[in-house]
Amino acid sequence: MISRSGLAVGFSVLAFGLAMSPTAQAQDLSFDSPYVEFGAGGNWQELALDNLSSSSNYTPSSTEVSNLELGADLYAAVGATLIPGLRAEIQGSYHTNSGARFDVQSEGSATLTADSATFMVLANLWKDFAVTQGMTFSVGAGLGLGSSQQTAESGAYTTDINTTGLAYMIGAGVGFDIGSGMVISLTYSLSGIAGGTSGQVAFDSSDSDDEPFTGDLSSSMNQSLTVGLRIPM
Rank of each mutant, 00 (worst) to 15 (best):
M1A: 13
I2Q: 02
I2R: 02
S3C: 06
S5K: 12
L7G: 00
G10H: 00
F11N: 00
L14M: 04
L14T: 00
L18M: 09
S21Y: 03
S21N: 15
S21K: 03
P22I: 13
Q25H: 13
L29W: 06
D32R: 15
V36W: 09
F38Q: 05
A40W: 02
G41L: 14
Q45H: 10
L49H: 02
D50V: 01
N51T: 02
N51D: 14
S56A: 08
N57A: 11
Y58W: 08
E64M: 15
G71V: 03
L74V: 15
A77E: 08
V78A: 13
A80E: 03
G85N: 11
L86D: 04
L86E: 04
Q91F: 01
S93R: 15
S98T: 15
G99E: 04
A100G: 10
R101V: 09
F102E: 06
V104N: 07
S106M: 08
E107N: 14
A110L: 05
T111R: 04
A123H: 07
N124C: 06
N124W: 01
K127H: 09
D128W: 07
F129R: 09
A130C: 03
V131W: 02
Q133S: 15
M135F: 10
F137I: 01
F137W: 11
G140C: 06
G142Y: 09
L145P: 01
G146L: 11
S147Q: 13
S147L: 07
Q149T: 12
T151I: 11
S154D: 07
G155A: 08
A156Y: 10
T164C: 04
G165Q: 09
L166H: 10
M169R: 15
I170W: 00
G179F: 11
M182H: 01
I184Y: 06
I184W: 13
L190K: 06
G195I: 02
G195K: 03
G196Y: 07
G196I: 07
S198N: 11
S198M: 06
F203W: 10
F203N: 05
D204S: 14
S205T: 14
S206T: 08
D207Q: 05
S208P: 07
D209W: 01
D209R: 01
D210M: 11
S219N: 07
N222K: 07
Q223R: 15
L225P: 07
G228W: 00
L229Y: 01
I231R: 00
